[in-house]
Design a protein around this nucleic acid. Structure first.
Ligand SMILES: [Mn+2]
Ligand SMILES: [Mn+2]
Ligand SMILES: [Zn+2]
Ligand SMILES: [Zn+2]
Lengths: 151, 151
DNA sequence: TTGATAATGAAAACCATTTCCAACTATTGA
DNA sequence: TCAATAGTTGGAAATGGTTTTCATTATCAA
């Protein structure tokens, strides 16, 4: 095992090999504090290792999402965005505030205590009523950001 | 004014013409109680009026979303889904429970009282802190449905 | 080493959505 | 009534993010 990052073990536990490309992609994701598109990651990885192709980025992201190491978001802007999952990130549990005009996405960590209370109650109730095993949720607020209001 | 549907007025208030195609599309949307893709709507509309093209479906849906008559959802399954907005639908305020395996989407209206309490507080707080004008929110729960668990 | 299996890059395919454009339709004002 | 104007339309083509294909290469266990 090359590195002993927290994600490395989990990834290998799934039977996947921790290759140079895959580590480079995870490196980019953990050094970023925003949401990255596949192309963003491709360009960043490329500067250190130009041999890595875009196909590998997509394939790796699929595995990382499947293993729960990264979270994939569709904000409705035509391309998926990725970020390290809560468990592997230095970011806290957060949700998203999205400007409908300029498409800016803000991470916010406010009101998480109140949220947790509501989410927990809803999850338990929905699991009982609909028989789902719920393991994830998404909350997005949509509006117009201050820059777009005045601009 | 051909019909006096609640949406007709709003649509024309925006300066758009209420054409046969557009009414046909709205008719399909209001007779459905699930989320429809552009192609779903195209096929349904086609049975009554084969002259209406897919391009018109997309164009009309864009206008309807812009005027707030329909809501557009990206569940992450490759195609957008549409449903009549709360104000024009006979459905109540609801959110979505999504199976990660079979991609089934369940509308639920449970825990809306508790939700409203949390959402209102968060909206006000976020508007103050980040200066956004928030007018919409989305809550999705992801998990595995009972059929996919046993199947 | 060796052989089996997994991972890779480049090019091509895919496919939902958008764009273009020429024809058509509704509205307006002489 | 009749243009002139502006809005709407369908089909074909283009777009662009993502996935598939396939031949080659890297990894790992024996
Ligand atoms: Mn985020
Ligand atoms: Mn719904
Ligand atoms: Zn903005
Ligand atoms: Zn299912």
């Amino acid at each position: 095992m090359r590195h002993c990052h927290k994600w490395g073990q989990k990834f290998q536990d799934y039977g996947f090999r921790l290759t140079v490309s895959r580590e480079a992609i995870l490196e980019v994701l953990s050094n970023s504090n925003t949401h990255l598109s596949a192309e963003d990651i491709y360009l960043a990885v490329h500067s250190g290792n130009p041999a890595i192709g875009l196909t590998t980025i997509y394939r790796t992201l699929e595995l990382l999402e499947h293993t729960g190491i990264v979270s994939k978001f569709e904000f409705g802007h035509g391309r998926a965005k990725y970020e390290l999952a809560e468990e592997f990130s230095n970011k806290k549990h957060h949700h998203h505030l999205i400007c409908k005009k300029c498409r800016k996405v803000i991470d916010y960590e406010d009101f998480i205590t109140e949220e947790k209370e509501y989410i927990t109650k809803a999850e338990i109730g929905l699991q009982n009523k609909y028989g789902f095993d719920i393991d994830n949720h998404i909350i997005h607020f949509y509006g117009i950001c201050p820059e777009c209001k005045t601009g």
